[in-house]
């Protein structure tokens, strides 16, 4: 398998890099060019959004970074090997759906990555409790997924991604199916987590507003084949709060990003 390889040339300048994609393309078996070629570099601790219309290959890019699919050409490099011993994982992945095992309790769902890495239950216990506490679900450890609301399921999914203490958090439209109020709350919680943990986050979304609110850098993609159209840095005073959502600065960024995105939707007028 030609998945992601470690960045071996560890010069001081590459030290900062967490993920790097060089001339990466993905062509599916049926001949559809899903992605690329794209170049993308994400620094350690950075929060980057991939924004684009459906079918622009942003989810494909995420799966390539995770090593779930191999690129057709080009290289995907991570600062750490994808799997390390002792249940530490360089990558946490959150899917669009919660993707929980319906037959397992919340605790067992969160435990899964540790179990697969053969971490003993005694050692896992503290980490599971920690991850559940981080996302505010400590009281629901013994519940089953079907007993939870959509937002809570997504939190469990997030806890599962965090339990291995990954360096990189890959999120594939994680909040797209949630109602607006739940989504806003999870946005805030995610930002707070990111401030505390300083993970590298690559966040795929098709919402302009979500991408601007969350990320330091928005990467706008075009569809068929998926390419990077432009990058827009979001620099505002940290920490961001609900006030940012209603500020003129935020509205300005949203307009810029929307305009950048407009060519990706041919036949439709800009905002």
């Amino acid at each position: 398998m030609t998945g992601p390889t470690a960045l071996t040339e560890s010069g001081s300048d590459t030290d900062e890099l967490s993920v790097s994609l060089r001339a990466v393309t993905k062509v599916y078996d049926n001949g559809v060019v899903a992605l690329g070629p794209i170049d993308l570099e994400v620094c350690k601790g950075e929060f980057v959004s991939l924004l684009g219309p459906s079918g622009c290959g942003k989810s494909t890019a995420l799966r390539l970074i995770a090593g779930l699919n191999a690129p057709t050409t080009g290289t995907v490099r991570l600062s750490h090997p994808a799997i390390e011993v002792g249940g530490r994982q360089s990558i946490g992945f959150v899917f669009q759906e919660p993707t929980l095992m319906p037959w397992a309790s919340v605790r067992d769902n969160v435990r899964l990555p540790l179990r697969l890495a053969r971490v003993s239950m005694a050692e896992a216990q503290a980490r599971i409790d920690g991850a559940l506490a981080q996302i505010g679900l400590a009281d629901f450890a013994d519940a089953y997924p079907r007993e939870l609301s959509g937002g809570m399921k997504m939190r469990v999914s997030l806890a599962r991604a965090l339990v291995t203490d990954p360096d990189i958090l890959l999120m594939d439209e994680p909040f797209a199916a949630l109602d607006e109020i739940t989504r806003f709350r999870l946005n805030n919680d995610l930002l707070a987590l990111w401030r505390d943990l300083r993970k590298t986050v690559i966040f795929v979304t098709h919402s302009v507003f979500e991408s601007v609110y969350l990320s330091q850098r928005v990467i706008v993609m075009t569809s068929r084949p998926g390419r990077i159209a432009t990058e827009i840095g979001i620099s505002t005073s940290e920490p961001r709060t609900e006030d940012f959502r209603t500020s003129a600065e935020y509205a300005g960024y949203c307009r810029r990003v929307s305009n950048a995105l407009a060519p990706s939707y041919p036949g439709q007028a800009g905002p």
């Binding site: 994982q89 992945f93 899917f95 993707t99 990555p113 697969l116």
Partner: peptide, 10 residues
């Protein structure tokens, strides 16, 4: 996706 998750975690 669950199968992908299992693959991701080796």
């Amino acid at each position: 996706n669950l199968a992908g998750l299992f693959q991701l975690y080796g």
